[in-house]
C-alpha cells in the first residue's frame, strides 16, 4: 500500500521560474516543486509525490495523519520480520 506522509514547508523560493520549496519530514529536508500549490505558505504541510507537492494540509490535519501513522508504525513493529538471511 502506498503512503503519503505530510511534511512541513520551511522555505519557498523561485528556481527556473518555478515555485519550489524545502519540506521538512521529521528532520529530513527534501526539495519539491510547489507549482501545483499556488496558495501554500511556509509553515503549512504538503504531501509530496514524485517530487511535487500534490496537496496542501493545515497543521491540525497533518498532525492527525501523523498520529495515525505513528500508531500503525507501532502495530507493524509487532508483526514478524522478514528472514534477514535472505537477499532483499
Amino acid at each position: 500500500m502506498c503512503l503519503g506522509i505530510p511534511g512541513k514547508v520551511v522555505e519557498i523560493y523561485q528556481a527556473n521560474d518555478m515555485k519550489m520549496g524545502k519540506v521538512d519530514f521529521g528532520g529530513v529536508i527534501k526539495e519539491a516543486c510547489l507549482e501545483f500549490l499556488p496558495d501554500i505558505q511556509v509553515g503549512e504541510y504538503t504531501i509530496i509525490h514524485v517530487g511535487f507537492g500534490i496537496s496542501q494540509l493545515d497543521e491540525e490535519e497533518a498532525q492527525r495523519t501523523l498520529e495515525m501513522l505513528r500508531e500503525m508504525e507501532m502495530l507493524a513493529d509487532e508483526l514478524p520480520e522478514l528472514d534477514q538471511g535472505l537477499q532483499v
Binding site: L3, I5, G7, F25, G26, G27, V28, K30, L66, L69, R70, E73, M74, Q87, V88
Partner: peptide, 17 residues
C-alpha cells in the same frame, strides 16, 4: 520514542536484485 522513520521511506529505493 515514536518516529515515523521518514528516512527509510524518503530515502527508500525500489530494491532490485
Amino acid at each position: 520514542t515514536l518516529v515515523i522513520q521518514p528516512v527509510s521511506r524518503i530515502e527508500g529505493h525500489a530494491k532490485i536484485t
